[in-house]
Structures are given as C-alpha cells and as structure tokens.
Nucleic acid binder design. Sequence first.
RNA 1: UGCUGCGGUCGUUCUAUCGCUCUGAAUUAGUGUAAACUAACUUCAGAGAGGAAAGUCCGGGCAGCACAGAGCACCAUACCUUGUGAAAACGAGGGCUCCGAUCUAAUCGGGGAUAGACAGUGCCACAGAAAAUAAACAGCCCACCUUGGCUUAGGCUUCGGUGGGUAAUGGUGAAAAGGUGAGGUAAGAGCUCACCGCUCUUAGGGUAACCGAAGAGGCAUGGUAAACCUUAUGGGCUGAAAGGUCAAAUAAACCGGAGCUAAAGUUGCUCGCUUUUCCGGAGGGUAGACUGCGCAGAUAAAUGAUAGAAUUCCGUCUUUGACGGAAACAGAACCCGGCUUACAGACUAUUUUUAAAA
Length: 130
Amino acid sequence: MRYSLNKNERLKKRDDIQHLFAHGKSEFAHPIKLYYQLKENNSDTPLLFGVSVPKKKFKKAVDRNLIKRRIREAYRLNQIPLKNLMAEKGHCLMIMPVYIADEIQDYKQIEGKIILLLQRLLRIYEQDNQ
RNA sequence: UGCUGCGGUCGUUCUAUCGCUCUGAAUUAGUGUAAACUAACUUCAGAGAGGAAAGUCCGGGCAGCACAGAGCACCAUACCUUGUGAAAACGAGGGCUCCGAUCUAAUCGGGGAUAGACAGUGCCACAGAAAAUAAACAGCCCACCUUGGCUUAGGCUUCGGUGGGUAAUGGUGAAAAGGUGAGGUAAGAGCUCACCGCUCUUAGGGUAACCGAAGAGGCAUGGUAAACCUUAUGGGCUGAAAGGUCAAAUAAACCGGAGCUAAAGUUGCUCGCUUUUCCGGAGGGUAGACUGCGCAGAUAAAUGAUAGAAUUCCGUCUUUGACGGAAACAGAACCCGGCUUACAGACUAUUUUUAAAA
C-alpha cells in the first residue's frame, strides 16, 4: 500500500462532516483535536480524511493553507497501520483533525501529535475487536 | 561615488525522494452486438498562484428578469485641447489658482473633486460688541444736562449721564464688508480723486480654457457645493449562492389499467357512475448530482513535505572565512480592463542635495 491521499479518500459530503461534528467522538493532543466516527453505510474506502483550521484564529488564507498542508502531509505518511486495520474489519472510519492553537507550529511538532493520535485510534479499535 | 525623492522591470533558484489536481495516451476491469461509456491507492507524458491572486471601489463581457413614450427620484462624471481605450481610466500639452525656492523679475518645483455661492435653503466651533437684511464693546466727534477747577466773565478744562453721528484706530478670529495714499470732515466714511482690485460693455488675440487693452460704474457680490442644491452629460434592475440540465423520497391533484360477491355516496329498488384499495405513467420540482468552467482550475477547495546545495540579508567570532538564523507582502474561485492598499531585496532611467577625491 502506498502513501497516497487522493480525492476518494477525502471527506467531501457536507452531511457527513456535519454528522461527524455533531455525533462523533474526539481525541485531543495539543494543538490538534481529532474527531472520528464509523460511517454507517460502507463504501470501498476504509478511511475518509478531512482537515479544518478555524478562520477565527488565522485570518490570512496563507496561514491556513500552510497548517492544512502540514497536517495532511503528516497524516499521509502515517496512515498505513490504521488503514490496514479498517480494511481488515471492513469498516469505514471518518477522521477530521481540527487545529486549535493560536500559533503556527513546525512540521516536526505537528507530525508527532498526528502519530500519537493515530496510535490512540489504533488501540481503541483493536480493543473493540476483542 | 554615496544618500534622498519619484518612475520602470523583477520579485529566490537547482537536485533527489515521497505525494496532490487537471489533461492526453496506454493497460486492466465492468457494461454493451458494436461504436462507445464508466472505474482504477496500474504506467507514461504534459500543464499547475500573484504583482498585487488582497480590498471588492469603478467599467465591461457573460447570465437572468424587465422594456410603448415621457417625467420624478437615485447614482456617476465636472477647467480647456488632444492621444489610447468598448468604457471606466490613464497619458501629453495648455489655462487659472494656492504653496515653496531663487530673490523682486519672472522662472523653476509641488498641490488643486478646478462647473455654479447676485436661483434658493442651511452652516460658520472657540474667541469676539458683532459671523451677515450688517453690526457701535472700547475709542473718536457733536448737542443737551450735570460734578469740580481756572478765569481778565468772552470762555477753557474735568467726573458722570442722555440722545445722536462715525467703520479712521484697538482687541478677537481661519475669515470683520474693497486696498494704499491724498483731499475732505465736528469726527469719519468711495464722500471725492490717483493707482491697484472688482463688475459690466466693446472690439482684439487664442481651436478653447483664458489673456492683455479701451471705456463705463463708486463698489453691489464674506466663506462653505467632499452641506442640501442648481446646471450639463451619461446610466433599466440583479449577480456565478446568477443561470442551465438531470433528478431520489414524500403529500395532494392529473392520466391509464386492475378490482367492484369489500365499503360508502348517488333516487325507494336494479344497472350505471363516483370515491376509498392496488399497479403503472406523466408533470412540475425539493434533497442531491452535473454544468456554468477557461491552454491553472478546485468545490471542507490541488499547486505541497522532507533532505541537500546555491543566492541575498542579519548576528557572533579566532574575519581572503567559519558557525547560527531568516527568506518581504501575501494564496486563484466566472473572466477581462482599471483604481486603492501591503511589500524584504535586486537591477535600472532621472531629479535634488551633501560629502570625499582629483
């Protein structure tokens, strides 16, 4: 499996995203809050990914783009274990990290937090299996 | 040569690995008689942010709606000539005016939303008597009354009051009702005169804005139109959340069929008809999807991440270098043309000025 993140693996439907924020669970590791939820009607892809940076905290579009790109890159390189697990089980998991902090952090810090959060999710669903 | 102002051009580059969006081709899979269509975390090739993409301030394209004609309202533009342009707008030259410099003669530089303030209405803080049908606070002058003084008894002078004249003087203000000088007067005043200014008229120069000249008028018309307003010219309204196509589900109505040995209604009964029931259809159209969409082109929105090198700048040091740090403003969303605002640095034309060297 490759380190890819193309159109089909992204959260796109407005309804899905609103449902995720309304009913999904969340994990937090500063500066990122990660919403996640299993999707009911299964599709082919095991993981659906979206990212959000609030306009309230970062007024310039350039800053928001930078943070989104860093989070997306970190997710892209570290998603494999979780994706394999979901594929095995036939689930479809929706994931949406939200950047909470007021300052822009560099890539290394963000990547560390993303890895931490993905490992937590992995543990949760492994236990769920047993 | 440096510095400053203003204008123009550019506004980080290269390599490797891993990725993203779009387009084209191939391959594989599916549907199909085929043509072809669809899908792919399969492969290859190509393209992929800006000078402001920003603010959303103008103009236009494009789209929908409206549309006999006229008026009102609203908005925009506003010295003249001329060039580019579809228009907004920008450029060139000139006029007028304000400011500054040289320094008293015009020149140079800069600014001006630069039509109209004798069509009307409003406003003009503070200060000041008064801020606009002119006005009398102090002052000046005259008349009368009055207190005191001097007196050669004619008057002179003085404190105060009443009435009148007066815009010369003072103070206030951004601005005080033509300016300066002379005559004149009780004191003053365009009251009169000279020069300047202003208004009107005439002819002249200039494409024009406007200019200088002559004559007349004793001067009326404070400022403000980025206050309302007036004049002239132009302008239908709304924006891609426009607009178009496809179209689940659901309710009522519509059409066709089934059913009618079920129920209700229609006349007391029979038939028939209608409704309730079931199946199918069409229509508009919601969710949603696609399009609108472009030689970048998305729609929770691609144009990136990591590593190394180069370039520039900053800091420290043991200074022909080493080490560390930074890379301005900022991210397309229907498309063009402008305006405005933000901006590290590099190159460059030109102006002013200073210093150094010769």
